[in-house]
């Protein structure tokens, strides 16, 4: 649905995005992840036709962003980082204006408006001036305007920024509910947002692609060792040496009263570890896999891990 090939964007001498390529399949939610000034907003601005690229190609729903900008703009709904609101308009006037701007036919404008208001849960404020509504509602108006023409693709730049935890949860639920019908690309530097809402990620740093793929693919490819954490009632010293004797175990370390057992990926030694703990009567309290989470992944990639 979204294809970016060798995209480069320069502002004078400054390279904001360099040779970026990624694909997002139809109906999926992808996160564009990276530290501040990584090039996330620039990438989104190029995709939505706000900025032209210096080099490269981008297609959205089969339309070339540069050759067919108006076709692309018709199928994209965009929530910029700074929500583009006119404070002196009421919520419904604003949404009607955006509907007309996005060329929703006059006859379909009213249902489109009603749908956007109900999906974004704005009914209680639809008659109020935008300048008088809360930050959370403003953000929802921003999402409503991106949805008003029922676009195939949604580009959301930091959709939960500046919201309180309850509002963040609401917006995430809203975004998840849009999956399937819409292909969504959202930028964020909240890692939890990615795990909770996204099917895959594109991690960029300093304008360049660091990694991209589904969360499972990425954690699998970046994981060097499989690791289990063991909590025992007694026999820690004994266990520290005994566990190393299990064929395949690379490393056993002790940390905060727990033991971490590591081995190379490809085999599963959990059964061996648990059997030994039981046989030696160490008093096994807990055995859990220490999966690589998105934080580990992100830090590894951004702090110079690069491609696996």
């Amino acid at each position: 649905m979204i294809e970016v090939e060798h995209l480069t964007k320069k502002y004078g001498d400054l390279i904001a995005v360099r040779d970026l390529s990624f694909k997002v399949a139809k109906g999926k939610i992808w996160g564009l992840l990276g530290p501040n000034a990584a090039g996330k907003t620039t990438t989104m601005r190029v995709l939505t036709g706000y900025l032209p690229a210096t080099e490269g190609k981008a297609t959205v729903a089969g339309f070339d962003v540069f050759a067919q900008p108006n076709e692309v703009k018709r199928v994209i709904g965009y929530l910029p980082e700074v929500v583009p609101l006119y404070p002196e308009m009421t919520v419904s006037d604003y949404l009607s204006f955006v509907a007309a701007l996005k060329q929703v036919p006059a006859a379909k404008r009213k249902p489109a408006l009603e749908r956007a208001i109900s999906v974004s849960n704005l009914a209680s404020v639809k008659g109020r001036l935008i300048k008088n509504i809360s930050r959370g509602f403003k953000q929802r108006v921003g999402i409503a305007q991106s949805l008003i023409h029922n676009p195939d693709v949604l580009v959301l730049d930091e959709p939960t920024i500046g919201l309180d935890p309850a509002q963040i949860k609401e917006i995430r639920e809203l975004i998840k509910s849009l999956k399937g019908e819409h292909t969504i690309i959202l930028s964020t530097h909240h890692l939890a947002e990615v795990t909770q809402t996204c099917d895959g990620v594109v991690i960029i740093n300093e304008g360049g692609l660091m990694a991209s793929g589904s969360l499972e693919e990425l954690t699998a490819s970046f994981r060097e060792k499989d690791r289990v954490i063991l909590r025992l009632r007694r026999g820690h010293e004994d266990a520290l040496t005994a566990l190393r004797t299990i064929p395949g175990v690379e490393k056993v370390t002790r940390h905060n009263g727990e033991l971490a057992v590591e081995w190379n990926p490809g085999k599963d030694l959990r059964e061996n570890v648990s059997r030994m703990a039981v046989e030696k009567e160490w008093g096994l309290l807990e055995l859990r896999t220490a999966a690589m989470n998105i934080e580990d992944l992100y830090l590894r990639v951004v702090s110079g891990g690069g491609e696996p």
């Binding site: 965009y78 006119y86 701007l101």
Partner: peptide
Amino acid sequence: KTGTDELLFTSPVN
């Protein structure tokens, strides 16, 4: 100044 130009220029309007 308010960033609303981003709405205008990403709409299918010349």
